[in-house]
């Protein structure tokens, strides 16, 4: 990738606690090109959301960026003063959160939310802003927007609310939208619609998307590339088609086996025994080694970096050139 829109290098996020710092993200590196959709997948607690919050600069204390850098259009943004960073939010980077029920202020009208946000990012008059708000609502597929704009959040269904949230995130025409589990809190029946709206609108507005989810199925349908996270690290990153068809990392293989089939959902990660370690108890070598069916001595001692394998990268000693046990390309599902 020549000139990525967003470039994250060796990002490290720590939580200051009474008992010393707790490393929540370690050595996270990824790029997103303009207009691209990058999926971030992993179990809850893997650090997906923290990655998104770190990029938009909304980590809650005591969480903070402790190392690495984040660049947007080549400009470093991880060390910007608060006021500078605020100017980027909404205008260059937008974010959509998991729960549309709690993302909107229950005491304000939908229109108040939209107009306020539009005015914050443009020189429009309130009247023009309202017209633009109605246009946006109609764009995200809300029927009778000129009437619904005066409604309160509780008068909208979950799916409609998430459409409003998408409209809000797009008010400032951001180049990058971070969507943190945008469909998890919704009924299965409306999940596909919301993903479709998100995909269509970001295409129309030319925004890149960082799509955070634990649902490999959503990634497979939506994203161009995918990063698999485990215990605060990226274990594999590459084109969706390749990662889904032939995952390299043993953890990713287990994850892919859990993609829901037409017959119904497979219990998530049933294939991998054990659970993700706590942040405070991450093993010395590869974080996945205690659960890994293919772990060998080196995995337990030395931490694997992201190794380039063809077009993609995997953090696994199986792919170290020095040590090459038969490349396992067989597909699990």
């Amino acid at each position: 990738m020549t000139n990525p829109l967003l470039s994250v290098r060796d990002l490290r996020v720590e939580f200051a606690t009474r008992r010393g710092p707790l490393v929540a993200l370690d050595g996270v590196s990824l790029d997103i090109a303009a207009g691209e959709i990058l999926g971030i997948v992993g179990e809850s607690g893997a650090g997906k959301s923290l990655t998104g919050l770190a990029i938009i600069g909304l980590l809650d204390p005591p969480g903070h960026i402790a190392g690495g850098e984040i660049r947007l259009d080549g400009r470093r943004i991880d060390n910007l003063p608060a006021a500078e960073m605020r100017k980027l939010r909404g205008r260059r980077i937008g974010m959509i959160f998991q729960d549309p029920l709690t993302s909107l202020n229950p005491l304000l009208r939908i229109g108040d939310h939209l107009v306020e946000t539009i005015l914050a990012h443009s020189a429009l008059t309130p009247k023009q802003a309202r017209e633009r708000a109605i246009a946006l609502l109609s764009e995200v597929g809300i029927p009778a927007p000129e009437k619904r704009i005066d409604g309160y959040p509780h008068e909208f269904s979950g799916g409609m609310r998430q459409r409003v949230v998408i409209a809000l995130a797009l008010c400032g025409e951001p180049a990058l939208v971070i969507a943190d589990e945008p469909t998890t809190a919704l009924d299965v029946s409306v999940q596909a619609q919301i993903i479709a709206v998100l995909k269509k609108l970001t295409r129309v507005h030319g925004a890149a998307v960082m799509l955070i989810t634990h649902d490999m199925g959503v990634i497979a349908e939506t994203a161009d590339r995918v990063a698999v996270m485990y215990a605060g690290r990226i274990v594999e990153i590459g084109k969706v088609s390749e990662v889904v068809r032939a995952p390299l990392h043993p953890y990713a293989r287990g994850l892919m086996a859990a993609i829901p089939t037409l017959e119904g959902r497979v219990a998530r990660l049933a294939q991998i025994p054990g659970a993700m370690p706590r942040l405070s108890a991450i093993p010395r070598g590869c974080a996945f080694s205690p659960r890994c069916p293919e772990a060998f001595d080196r995995c337990r001692v030395e931490r694997p970096p992201l190794l380039t394998v063809g077009d993609r990268s995997a953090a696994c000693w199986l792919y170290d050139r020095g040590h090459a046990p038969a490349m396992t390309t067989e597909i699990v599902s």
Partner: peptide
Amino acid sequence: SKPAVEPSTIESA
């Protein structure tokens, strides 16, 4: 003195 890092409240119940 700071004791060794202990189970955190972020993850544990």
